[in-house]
């Protein structure tokens, strides 16, 4: 447990002292979402209709963009080898790395999302559900994304490849994430969607570290 905390603390410290990357991810998120009104026109009725979907898709793309940093820097300076050799189960290390990734990209996206929601004229109740849905969905994204990041570790074309690998796998998160927001917007209870998102998160929490750790081991051989 202390090792887990140490890894999270270290990754957070690195992210804070090299703050640029977090800023770039959030900027990308805001930029992609604000391109849509330019593409479909400024009518508020249309924007209100597509807002939740656009924000979710933009968050998904921004999360993909940030994945290549998850293990790459540690791989390049050799500290990943030390983590693999460390007397802590690699699955826990992976969990800690995913948690740190979520804290440095998922949470900023989560905080930026309601502001974007205002640009799409979403109501306050809807915004609240959206933040809740993203709070459940984005850690699952980090966990699933970690698999892709580990599989493409050290590859030259890793950046594009990781999106191709991970995006089809995370379609359930998108579907239920948007579903929750749309349910809230139409006044039906979003509870079912949020519960399923929670279930997806729990399943990802239990299962993905094994796959990610196996992928890391094969990459370090």
């Amino acid at each position: 447990m202390s090792a887990l905390a140490a890894i999270v603390r270290r990754d957070l410290a690195i992210a804070l002292r090299r703050g640029g990357h977090v800023g770039v991810v959030v900027a990308f998120f805001v930029l992609v979402a604000s391109l849509f009104p330019l593409g479909v026109g400024p009518e508020l009725a249309v924007l209100r209709r597509i807002g939740s979907g656009v924000i979710w898709v933009a968050a998904l793309l921004a999360a993909m963009l940030s994945l290549d940093r998850l293990f790459q820097a540690d791989f390049e300076d050799g500290s990943l080898e030390q983590l693999v050799l460390a007397p802590v189960a690699l699955e826990f290390v992976v969990l800690a790395k995913a948690l740190a990734h979520w804290l440095t990209t998922g949470v900023p996206l989560l905080l930026a999302a309601p502001v974007l929601g205002l640009l799409f004229d979403l109501e306050r109740g809807t915004l609240l559900v959206m933040v809740l849905a993203m709070a459940l969905g984005s850690p699952a994204l980090s966990l699933m994304g970690a698999i892709g990041a580990a599989l493409t570790l050290g590859l030259r074309r890793g950046g594009v490849l990781v999106s191709l690998l991970v995006l089809p796998l995370v379609t359930p998160i998108l579907i239920f994430g948007v579903g929750a927001v749309e349910a809230a917007a139409t006044g039906t209870p979003a509870r079912t969607h949020l519960l399923i998102l929670g279930a997806l998160l729990l399943a990802a929490l239990a299962l993905t570290p094994w796959a990610t750790a196996a992928a890391l081991r094969s990459a370090m051989e």
Partner: peptide, 21 residues
């Protein structure tokens, strides 16, 4: 090895994808 891991992750995920779609 990497492809095998990906394939198995996909195999676990496919029923979830099917259900959600």
């Amino acid at each position: 090895k990497a492809a095998a891991i990906l394939c198995l992750v996909g195999a676990v995920d496919i029923p979830v994808i099917k259900f959600s779609v």
